[in-house]
Amino acid sequence: MEGIDGSGKTTQLALLAKWLSAAGHPVFMTEWNSSALVKAATKAGKKKNALTPMTFSLLHATDFADRLLYNIIPPLKAGMIVLADRYSYTAFARDAARGVDRRWVRELYSFAAKPDMAVYFRVPIDVSVDRLLARRVKLKFYEAGLDMGWSTNAVESFRMFQGKVLDEYDRLVEEYGLSVVNAIGSITEQQRVFRKLVSQHLEIENHEQLDESA
């Protein structure tokens, strides 16, 4: 699941997980930047605003490698559906927006398992900002791209930085064939589209398996 902050992807993912579980599919959730391994460094780095675009990128890749080996590959081997709240595309989009070389990041993540399906929740920057501010969330330093020094105003910086991230995602949609969900509609509407996409995919999977066994 991909999308910028305020795209609603976490809400959508939770609803999808409910539905899959109810249908009897074993589900495993994993979240971007959540491994214990790099937590201390990321926290310390963020606190002091000491992360550069390169160390930011590499710390996230380390987190990803750790989760791939402990939280992604084992559940896949056990036949579960792994739902990833953000995947390598997040790194491709954010790191490129910070000025890291696009080719370098892509090669960096070449050890990643290719997802069976990647869904991108596309949202205009205004909608994302409105949603975040309505929740009275304080925009975080790195999420708002304040490390880039483009603006000292958090909202303004968020718009500029996430605007660039959106541009990068648009590239990725084409490059990696991400399925796009228009994330402006109501929660229920989006979930309907999302479930349809996923069910098509699961049917195809089942079909393939039947063919193989035939």
Binding site: L37, V38, A40, A41, A44, G45, A50, L51, T52, M54, T55, L58, L59, A61, T62, A65, D66, L68, L69, Y70, F111
Partner: peptide, 29 residues
């Protein structure tokens, strides 16, 4: 940035070759 994390990681045995390489690369960066 990385010295404390690398020390902790080396102390536990959860490091695998990929994370090992990436932690050092982060340190170098």
């Amino acid at each position: 940035l990385m010295q404390p994390t690398i020390e902790v990681a080396k102390g536990s045995n959860t490091l695998n070759k990929l994370t090992f390489v990436l932690l050092y690369a982060t340190d170098f960066a």
